[in-house]
Amino acid sequence: MSNTKTKTRQSAVGQLASAASSEVIIDLIEVNKWYGEFHVLKNINLVVHEGERIVICGPSGSGKSTLIRCINNLEEHQDGSIVVDGITLDKNLKNIDHIRTEVGMVFQSFNLFPHLTILENLTLGPIWVRKLTKIEAEKRAMEYLERVKIPEQADKFPAQLSGGQQQRVAIARSLCMNPKIMLFDEPTSALDPEMIKEVLDVMIELANTGMTMIVVTHEMGFAKTIADRVIFMDEGVIVEENEPNAFFGNPQHARTKLFLSQIL
């Protein structure tokens, strides 16, 4: 297994040498996490470069959501180090708040604020955290609503929107903070089939702008289209990591082969 890992790491690096910018933006070194006695993340090593698009897949309970939630400290890791945008995540609340402004996140359950209109959902962060004026924030919010193709919903409340629309609003809300990194935690898992596409389209468009993205998803078609690297996790470890063609065409590890045969 360690053999596979070294190989994929080399291939990823080799591929990135050709990319315009190759600065390391997320660096996880020997990260471990436990829920009580349960060892969820075991010795995770992961390097993400600026502009890279990474898809993480794996069976449920494999620790993929926990992994990306550690990156913006929604979950605390207990061992190892996580460096995001040059800042090491530790107990320092200021660092955590700073990293969270640079890292956007989209959840399976949207987590929009039900007591605020769509526009207010989008302008809250820019006004209170980025200290924009209300006019600037609203202008920016409308730009992103245009980009996710629902500017006409600006004055509605989240409960009045369909699931797909809510998720697009959630993406726009994160983008309004002008983050350097976007994390997606199963963004389409709670959606009806006909709504998945509208969300994926927005994500593909976002990928094309060069955003650094880490996406936990079961949408393998999406992974093939946009991922620079696909990571397969099981039981808290990274089992296999490769660029998508090789990952889907020629999986190495027996566990990966089994997983792919079950979902494709």
């Binding site: 913006n72 402004t101 987590n111 007591h115 962060g125 959630a170």
Partner: peptide, 27 residues
């Protein structure tokens, strides 16, 4: 999820409480 949503747009404890959590709870 509401706390997490608030934290991911960079709000700290008091920001999340005052703008997101408390208004809903009081309502």
């Amino acid at each position: 999820g509401q706390y997490e949503g608030a934290h991911t747009i960079g709000l700290g404890y008091w920001g999340a409480m005052g703008l997101i959590i408390m208004p809903q709870a009081l309502k």
